[in-house]
Design a protein around this nucleic acid. Structure first.
Length: 295
DNA sequence: GCAAATGTATTGCTACACCG
DNA sequence: CGGTGTAGCAATACATTTGC
């Protein structure tokens, strides 16, 4: 079977017209080209050149074959280019499943930025509940998952993340003038929060109790975005993650620092034990960069 | 089971001869 | 003199064997 090197030599001779010229093109010695051509002819079983007056003249068969060789070499160039793109994480695919808090606006923002640097990458982003996100990652249907911290550590690799929550208020709310909001400021005021049995609501209740304040639950709704929408309509205040608060700022809602610190924990999930692609690694770095803005 | 040693194939070089 | 072809050599890569 002939070799790629022989095809390269053949192409170089066809283009340069002489073996010596082909050697220069390929950065080889002249004998090397000569040997390659001889080997190719031997492998093919017919002559590519007739030796006339110590010069090579391509045969009709050589001219006929040359077109196919050019196509094959271009194909190899394509493979080399694609390999380089993969190596530089410029090509590939990225499948992300995330809880709505991040999937609605934050991750599209990160992904859009990512795609400017990695235009060859195809992105899939799906908003799912945390248990579904975990399933999609453990079954390797997705490369990255963002979920709340309830997952089985045996089936996924996880990087825990936490964001400091902020207090969101209707823009015209009397407390909107304060820079820092404390439980005592909010005692007895109507809150829009996650359902009562949610761990975050329970922790919030404990925090208020510790600070001698009363948590007065007015609306229960599972999504941060829904909470913000209620707040923007003037229904009450809420304690939400800073990403969603940022997404809603300017829509009739203001965000203020909340003390003492109250964190929303979540995690970045990866299929367990599976090597992460260069594309995945690059995206994770960008997510970390974007999350820094919310500290 | 692993590393060192050995054998083999490939590659590309230089030197040299031949041709027009 | 420039182009082509062959022989021989060294470096390298790879596979297999040997020794611990």
């Amino acid at each position: 079977m002939f070799k790629v090197r022989q095809l390269e030599a053949f192409h170089a001779v066809m283009v340069a017209g002489t073996v010596t010229g082909a050697a220069v093109r390929l950065g080889l010695s002249q004998p090397a080209i000569s040997t390659l051509i001889a080997g190719l002819e031997s492998d093919l079983g017919f002559s590519l050149f007739v030796r006339e007056k110590s010069r090579l003249q391509p045969t009709e068969e050589a001219k006929y074959l040359h077109g196919a060789v050019v196509g094959a070499l271009q194909g190899l160039d394509g493979i080399a280019q694609l390999a380089a793109d993969i190596r530089d994480a410029k090509a590939g695919s990225l499948r992300i499943a995330a809880l709505p808090m991040l999937a609605l606006e934050f991750l599209p923002r990160v992904a859009a930025h990512f795609l400017r640097d990695y235009p060859g990458v195809n992105v899939t982003l799906q908003a799912r509940s945390s248990p579904t996100v975990v399933t999609l990652v453990t079954t390797q249907q997705f490369d990255i998952g963002f979920s709340e911290t309830a997952y089985d550590p045996g089936w996924v690799d996880a990087e825990k993340l936490r964001l400091r929550c902020v207090c969101v208020l209707p823009a015209q709310h009397p407390l909107a003038g304060k820079d820092v909001i404390r439980p005592a400021d909010l005692s007895g005021l109507p809150i829009v929060t996650a359902p009562r049995d949610h761990i975050r609501t329970q922790r919030l209740q404990e925090l208020f109790a510790e600070n001698g304040a009363t948590l007065s639950i007015k609306v229960e709704t599972p999504l941060f975005a829904s909470m913000c929408a209620f707040v923007a309509e003037g229904v009450g205040y809420s304690i939400v993650d800073p990403v969603t608060a940022h997404d809603f700022s300017g829509r009739g809602l203001v965000a203020r620092r909340f003390e003492p610190a109250f964190f929303n924990d979540f995690a970045m999930l990866f299929p367990a034990g599976k090597p992460r692609s260069l594309v995945t690694q690059a995206f994770v770095r960008l997510v970390a960069e974007f999350l820094k803005d919310y500290d």
